[in-house]
Nucleic acid binder design. Structure first.
Lengths: 232, 232
DNA sequence: ATTATTATTTGTCAAAATGACATTTAATAA
DNA sequence: TTATTAAATGTCATTTTGACAAATAATAAT
């Protein structure tokens, strides 16, 4: 087999920054690392890119293996490739951020796997450059969520406007005016109001909404401005 | 030395999608590939990531080596990692897009190196998945340029408003209303009007402007909306 | 010297979007 | 019947936007 002679070869890994929302707070999914070095330390969900898969494939595979989750929203963040980022041998890692609805998978997580949710601001020390990855992912999530309706990926099929607003506030670490928020969200035309109400949060109850998936897909690239006084 | 046993190792390369503006059209910098396979075919400027450098370092090095250019605006695009994208052996490539002022480097290019500028829409067939990289880079350039003032990176220190508008029109492949454009650009507060005029384009001449670099750096992340009816 | 030419520059106005702010409403609990 | 509490909705002044045309400055032509 012909080769590009003399060029160094490296390991290539993927690491997934998995965000979730439990209805109240933004959370981050971490696992205890299963191999040396730094075994049993908290880590992002990751793994090596296999011989017959792309990094995208690898991220999906690794996510599924570690959490049982399939069909998750995944987006490439960036590559992390400082020569000494892994002390054992040179490994480049492709960072992905993933968005999921916590409730949908809570059972699988705690039972079958060793993954655990942490409040984003209270997560433990992470191995290697994973803390940097998380910081970058949060920034990108803010950026993207300000312009595109990706946060719906973290909500259950039925959700209320107050829930949605809470999620936006968590992601952007800010308070948003209820009236203006609901006006903006309505004007996107992405929501369909349901009959049912969520009575858990108040006496009056809040109407459930669902996403208009056709419009969501069709207008995903459409430019929104969901955050007031947006400074990216 | 300890190693992660049994994991496959790959080559890692960088490829740079270099955009330039000659005052009239948006152009793309290509080189004739210097090694087998596909030797002498048109290719993006690329190279392998060396043992002691990050991909970012490699991109800068490769750009400098191939063009003499230093301190260029570089931004990571994404990783390209389909298993069979390189027929010789598995190589993952980190795509970067770069923005430069054509005139600043025209001499070096034609004399010392084998790089050549092509109209973006009239570039030759490219090797491997480089055409896809170019397409992705154009898209990302449009996206980013709609929200952040990166296009100034492609202009000389002194430039005119009509030039700037032409550049925006090229990147977005659209016509923009002169009055609205100039109003928006002015409102950013990023431009400083000079005494001198550019008489080359008209009898009346167009005033030169320069970038207020302090404000540029300070407000780079600030959110702009430079394209009318923005659909990303 | 006057006029024509041509790209540059600037102006207006109605419509839409935004941000700041308070009241009403629906359901349960007291 | 009233009190309570979160949800839902309304108003208004300001700013931004998009569509549209006229004025200006310099040279070229007559």
């Amino acid at each position: 087999m012909i080769e590009y002679s003399g060029q160094p070869h490296y390991l290539v890994a993927v690491d997934c920054i998995v965000f979730g929302f439990d209805g109240e707070r933004l959370k981050l999914l971490l696992v205890k690392r299963g191999l040396e070095p730094e075994i049993n330390k908290w880590s992002l969900i990751g793994g090596f890119v296999g011989a017959n898969e792309s990094p995208d494939d690898a991220a999906n595979r690794v996510l599924k293996k570690n959490t049982g989750l399939e069909g998750i929203y995944l987006e490439q963040l960036q590559i992390y490739g400082e020569p000494d980022r892994d002390p054992i041998e040179r490994t480049l890692s492709v960072g992905y951020f993933a968005l999921i609805d916590i409730h949908k998978y809570e059972a699988q997580l705690s039972d079958e796997y060793h993954a655990e949710w942490f409040l984003v601001n209270e997560s433990p020390k992470l191995i290697f450059d994973h803390a940097q990855m998380v910081a970058d992912a949060r920034k990108k999530l803010r950026y993207k969520a300000a312009l595109h309706p990706i946060l719906f990926e973290m909500l259950p099929k039925k959700f209320t406007i107050p829930q949605l607003q809470l999620l936006f506030e968590e992601v952007n670490d800010t308070k948003i005016d209820t009236r203006n928020f609901s006006r903006k969200i309505s004007s996107t035309g992405l929501l369909i109001k349901l009959e049912e109400k969520d009575k858990s949060g108040s006496k009056k109850g809040a109407f459930y909404f669902k996403l208009d998936k056709k419009k969501y897909k069709a207008n995903f690239q459409a430019f929104l401005n969901l955050i007031p006084n947006l400074k990216l």
